[in-house]
Simulated scan of single mutants.
Amino acid sequence: MKIVHTIKEVRDIVKGWKKQGLSVGFVPTMGYLHEGHGSLVEMASKENDRVVVSIFVNPIQFGPKEDFSSYPRDLERDGKIVEAAGGDLIFNPSNEEMYLGDFSTYVDMNGITEGLCGAKRPGHFRGVCTVVTKLFNIVLPDKAYFGEKDAQQLAVIKRMVRDLDIPVEIVPCPIVRESDGLAMSSRNTYLNKEERKAALVLSRSLNSAKEALLQGERSAENIKSMISEILTEEPLARIDYVNVVDSLSLTEVVTIDKSVLIAIAVFIGKTRLIDNFIFEV
């Protein structure tokens, strides 16, 4: 397993692989990896001859009051996780390598970026689309792997690849959870002991909603109310959003009569966590 820091190095290595007829899988990350990221690398390793993992904390997807400077970073630790999961190459560029001083070209999207996380984080998905497009152009993978925990991001990337005819297959990967149900996230490291316990309210509220749906509840408003009521019982929790949306278009639904995404974002203390599940009628 090798770590490189320049675009030229990645391109040269991937070009060599492709000359040998090898397939290339790609896992884009912001680092501080956990078992969830490891599962993406493992799946990519099973389905491809070689796997590239990018580790880049992308500055243009953070808002001015968000945690870019404090976002956890540990390349040595990340390298061990990638190697153990079957990765072959880590691309860890600097900000200057990815964005020249006079950088002025962005990839943007309307519609599905405007609700859920996009409603409270203006410019976030422009940053995501721009950096992922650049990474696809640099790595030229056959397949790219994204976690279903970031459901809106996954939907945005799928749409972008479709709309721009980018020749890469997007592979969704299931949410990986801690043994007590908390969805794995690099931001979980921000939680103190009391907050970590309080964070379980996210999965607990979603499990209650899932049970109600299995028992026949079909009102989106009732499902949202049920989730919100459970979340507000936790003193350390502050709701950002609770939504029930069409799983493809991400538009809000009134009656649950097709595939829907039930998605929540909740602040536990100062840490913003997200979780979701898809329900198929």
Rank of each mutant, 00 (worst) to 15 (best):
G38T: 03
P93T: 07
A183Y: 00
L213E: 07
E229R: 14
A220Q: 00
K80Y: 10
S186L: 01
V82S: 02
R159V: 00
E148F: 01
L75K: 04
N58M: 12
P235R: 07
S54V: 02
L116Y: 02
T251K: 15
S54I: 11
F125L: 01
G31S: 11
C117W: 00
D163T: 12
V176D: 09
S179A: 14
L236D: 13
K149T: 02
V132W: 00
V156A: 11
I264S: 08
V254W: 03
V128R: 04
R73I: 13
M226Q: 10
N188D: 09
A263R: 11
K2N: 13
R272K: 14
N48G: 01
T189H: 11
T189I: 14
D108G: 10
G36I: 05
E96V: 07
D142F: 11
S70W: 08
G269P: 06
I268H: 01
E83H: 07
R11P: 00
G216A: 10
S39N: 14
R162V: 12
V132C: 11
A212V: 05
H5A: 01
I223T: 06
M160F: 03
V107G: 03
P64K: 15
R121D: 03
D246E: 05
G127F: 09
S104K: 15
G111S: 05
K158T: 05
P172D: 03
F91Y: 09
R272H: 04
G38E: 08
G127H: 08
F91R: 12
H5G: 04
A151M: 15
T105S: 12
N192V: 06
E234F: 07
G181W: 13
Y71F: 10
E194F: 11
M160S: 06
E252N: 14
Q61E: 09
F146V: 07
